[in-house]
Every structure is written in C-alpha cells, then in structure tokens.
Simulated scan of single mutants.
Amino acid sequence: MDERVKTARLSIISNSSLTIMKLLVGIFTGSVSILSEAIHSTMDLIASTITFFSVRISSKPADKEHPYGHGKFEDVSGVLEAVLIFIASIFIIIEASKRLISGKELGSSVLGFSIMFLSAFINFFISRKLYKVAEKNDSMALRADALHLRTDVYSSLGVALGLFLIWITNLHFLDPLVAIFIAVFILKEALNLLKTAFEPLVDVKLSDSEISIITSTISKYSSGYCGFHKLRTRKSGDKRYVDLHLVFPGNMHMKNAHDICDNIENEMNKSLENTEVMIHLESCDNNCSNCGLSNKSKCRNR
C-alpha cells in the first residue's frame, strides 16, 4: 500500500478516537472549550477521510481521461479541508460567545485538563509523522492534514491551560474566552492553507527558488543552443510541469539538438523530483540567422 495512504489511515484512526473522547468529556464537564475541541477534531476527522481518498486517487497513474495524472485531487482536498476548518472556527466563536454571555460554570476542570493534554501529546506525534511523509512525497493533502493536527496540538494545549487557570482561580469565564482565542488562531491557519492549496488549481507558477533551479539547469548546456524563451511552469499534486522553447542555430543537426534537450530534461529531473519537461525546438529566425556559438547572446532569453 502507498505510504501516503497508510499515513492518512493512521490519521483517521487517531482523529476518530480523540473526537469521541473529547465529545464525552465535553458533555460531562459542560466545557465549551472542550466541546469546541471536539468539533475541531470532528472537522479533522472529516479532513483525514478526504485526505485518505484523495491520496488514493492521486496515486493512480495517468489515464485516457486524465492524461496529466490525478495530482490535482490532492489540491482539491486541501481546499475542502481549509473550508471545513473555516466553518468550524466560525461555529466555535458563535457557541463560545453564547456561553460567555450565559456564564454557565464547568464541571470537573481537572478531567478536562488531562484529556486535552493527552490529545495534544498524541496529535503532536501523529502530525510529525504526517509532515515527514508529506515532505518526502510532496503531498498537499497530507501537508494540509498535518496542519490540522498541528493546530489541534496548539488548541488543545490552550484549552488545557485555560482549564488549569479555572481550577486555580475559579474564573469560569476563561473557558469561552480560550475557545474564542483558539478559534481565531485556527481561522488564520485555515486562510493560509486555503491560499496554498488553491494556487495549483489556477496554475500559479512554481516558486522563485524552483524556477531558479530550472533556469540554472538550462544554462548548463548554453554552449549548445542560442537561447530560450516562453518558459512556463505549474504544479499538479506532487508533479511539476515545465515547458519552454529552445532556440538552436539553423544549421544544427536535429539529433544534436535533441540530445541537448534530453540532457536538460534528465538534469532537471535530478534537481527537481517528479518534474515533466516539454521542450519545443526552434530554429533561429531572420533576426539571428547568423546565430552561432560565438554570438548566441543576441537571442538568449528573448
């Protein structure tokens, strides 16, 4: 089974257990911050399920209907997860505001503190595993799921701190205040995730550092061509796509030009994993009809 699928399944198991545990403790103690964490974990569980199916689909090879592969399913998953977090955050703020106005007191804050600390401890290790696999496989879906769990770590610790302060001070209004603070924090993370996941769906170019690697790789073989232009890049899941026009002297043999293109493609795949390169060969036009290895600068990067 694909490593990404195994890791996504682990996230589902973890979130299922924590959601049930937080829900039961939240109902028993009457803590809106714990109930908000249960809602947060429920969103994480839904997100983990979406991640599980998206990585299964995205790992499929290209087919007749999807000639560029299924990578964008992961990007769609990231957008859906961000929207779910956004909705959960708004719901938490509304419910916490109601509790702040009503002034209802909690039950056992010690039990709530213990559960929240345990939740943070478990999610810390699960999120670290998700991040590790996400970076290894360049998986947007797993990266988004890891972010969910990482925010769950912070929010659980925040709730635990709030419950601990309530236990010491007996100031029960701290519970909904902590819940609102956590919701705002989660909301900010959701907006950042939405931006990151949405960009590949509208074919935003690769990062400046990746483009720098691409241009440096092309320049390694500059002694064999006159110049290049129309460089375009985009990303789909863990796949990077690069296409460009490479200009050669009009009298160069086709095989020699093709060999240079092969060398560039091979070198680029070593520098950037999962990169597909499409190079269009061009002959110098009338403006550089005398283009040769000695005056190739006349048409480079035009």
Score class of each variant (00 low, 15 high):
S108P: 11
R99W: 13
A134E: 00
E273A: 05
A88Q: 03
S127Q: 01
V83Y: 07
L142R: 15
H148F: 12
S59C: 00
E265Y: 05
F28V: 08
I211C: 10
R56C: 03
I213C: 08
I94P: 14
I27T: 07
L45V: 10
V25F: 11
H172M: 00
V184Q: 01
D2G: 08
C291E: 03
K239V: 04
I122S: 15
C288Q: 07
G78L: 04
I90E: 00
G103S: 06
S156E: 01
I264N: 08
G69F: 12
I218M: 11
H172D: 01
S156N: 07
I57S: 14
V76E: 01
G158R: 12
Y221H: 15
I126V: 15
A82V: 09
L177Y: 05
A179M: 06
L163A: 06
L84T: 13
L142V: 10
E74F: 02
G107K: 14
M268G: 07
H245E: 06
E210A: 09
D262K: 15
L206S: 07
A96F: 13
I115L: 09
V277M: 05
F113C: 09
V5H: 15
D2C: 04
H258N: 11
R300V: 11
P67N: 09
M43K: 03
L23K: 10
L194S: 02
L45H: 07
F73P: 08
M268H: 12
D238K: 15
M268W: 13
E276V: 12
L187N: 01
F53G: 07
S297F: 15
T151V: 04
I85P: 08
H172N: 03
C299H: 09
V110R: 06
H245M: 02
L246P: 08
C226M: 09
S48Q: 09
I87N: 14
E199K: 05
S222G: 07
M278H: 12
I186P: 06
K129I: 04
F53V: 09
A257S: 14
D238A: 15
I214G: 12
S97N: 05
F198R: 01
L161K: 13
M252I: 13
L272M: 14
L80M: 06
R56S: 02
G162H: 11
A190H: 04
F113W: 13
D152H: 07
A134Y: 10
V76M: 06
A146V: 06
D138N: 13
L246A: 00
V133K: 12
A96Y: 08
S58I: 12
L174D: 05
F248Y: 11
H40M: 04
G26A: 07
F125W: 14
